[in-house]
Design a protein around this nucleic acid. Structure first.
Lengths: 240, 240
DNA sequence: ACCTGAACACCGTTCAAGT
DNA sequence: ACCTGAACACCGTTCAAGT
């Protein structure tokens, strides 16, 4: 993009795909998904609303591109660890934190199924799953399970944070109030929910998230040695 | 619109929450999430747009209620099997099929984190996880992993079906075309994606889905006997 | 090639007014 | 108590017209 040069271009920085994506990320971070508006974007960038369409196909393209930018940064920052397990954990935690910082990324990722950002994650996690020695025909289901856990749990953790903030509460206080509501449900009808709620005391979301990852990895270790009778030697779904 | 009836009530059936939810489900099934409009709903029901607000808080309330109706029906139809594992599998498959029939349910479920439909699923699955003998402090992470896998993978399978249909293709042909696109990526940059794509031949989505469930259940069996060092005796997230 | 901004075809939600 | 429907404050997207 043309840096500030003497030649009096129309604007200090010309409009560009990258500048639009950056501005979109800022709007999304500040006000959530419904704050991303072509009008708001145009105002931020000092252009007309329609100008953006020269660089971006439509809103879903914009959201996917913003999501991809965050994913790329996150994966770049994830050091490759010694073992495949450790690398998976590092990627998972990196995404967890990225979603916490950019609460909109979780749901954006869910809607970007076969698209670039998801493919990057499938690739990175898939390489580790392969390195783990998981049988060929189980690799896709394994990557799916890991990815959906990461995006699902991480995305909802981020949603919690936003929700707490919207209620003007610290995250812990908010979670406690939800837990207390669950505790007071009729125990005959809700035996599990009431009992699990009573475990909500001091909680560490990241540690809990990691516990789930470990659970999945434990399943891998016990499952990778042989193929169960219900698992058949073909089959894979064409997205993540 | 007032049917020709002797008793001149305003309408044959009075407007009610249930009637609205039913109409919403039909609109959602027929045209997806963006087809659910207060105007379309009002026209279907033969009322004014604003009348709906007497029975329903807002659009998100409506979507959650529609989602809950589907979840209730699905859980009712799920027979309780002999073993906890079999029951989990039955619930998972029931939801898989429900999402396939109502493609909008997946994303609705994702946005309904602490709300009624999700709580029902947490309760049903949680009971089985407990029956499986999973340690108290690991139950929440376990239910989370299962639920996110089910909703995530099932939801995307449904999205695939819709996507294929939108492209005027049979589901299998659509998936094959995606797989072929993945295969043609540069293999140095995408070693896993290209290799996994080459496994996409004849695939059975439900069988693959079940393979993932089995993977998770295998993790449970190996993990429920002891607590690993990274899993700590507290912690739980206050939603699903 | 790139940008402008009015215009189009929608939205969810509210609310005075009706019965 | 329940319903009406016009009105309000928005949307994404397009497109003739400009530079």
């Amino acid at each position: 993009m043309p840096k500030p040069s003497r030649t009096p271009s129309r604007r200090e920085d010309a409009l560009s795909r990258d500048r639009i994506i950056d501005a979109a990320i800022h709007l999304l971070d500040a006000g959530g998904e419904h704050a991303l508006t072509f009008r708001a974007l145009a105002q931020t960038l000092g252009t007309g609303a329609g100008a953006i369409y020269w660089h971006i196909a439509d809103k879903s393209d914009l959201l996917t591109a913003a999501c991809d930018a965050v994913v790329v940064r996150t994966l770049d920052e994830c050091a490759r660890e010694a073992s495949p397990q450790a690398t998976i954990r590092a990627v998972a935690l990196g995404l967890f934190d990225a979603m916490d910082a950019h609460a909109w990324v979780g749901s954006a990722l869910m809607r970007a199924a076969g698209r670039l950002p998801t493919m990057r994650l499938v690739e990175r996690i898939g390489q580790q799953v392969r390195a783990l020695g998981v049988a060929d025909d189980a690799q896709w289901a394994t990557v799916s399970a890991l990815l959906h856990y990461i995006v699902g749990v991480g995305g909802q953790n981020a949603a919690n944070a936003r929700h707490a903030q919207a209620h003007g509460l610290v995250r812990g206080d908010y979670l406690d109030s939800v837990a207390r509501a669950w505790e007071q449900l009729p125990a005959q009808e809700w035996p599990f929910v009431t009992s699990v709620a009573s475990q909500f005391a001091a909680h560490d979301d990241r540690a809990d998230f990691l516990a789930g990852i470990d659970l999945l990895l434990a399943g891998l270790e016990s499952g990778s040695r042989h193929t169960t009778s219900t698992r058949r030697p073909k089959a894979a779904r064409a997205d993540a």
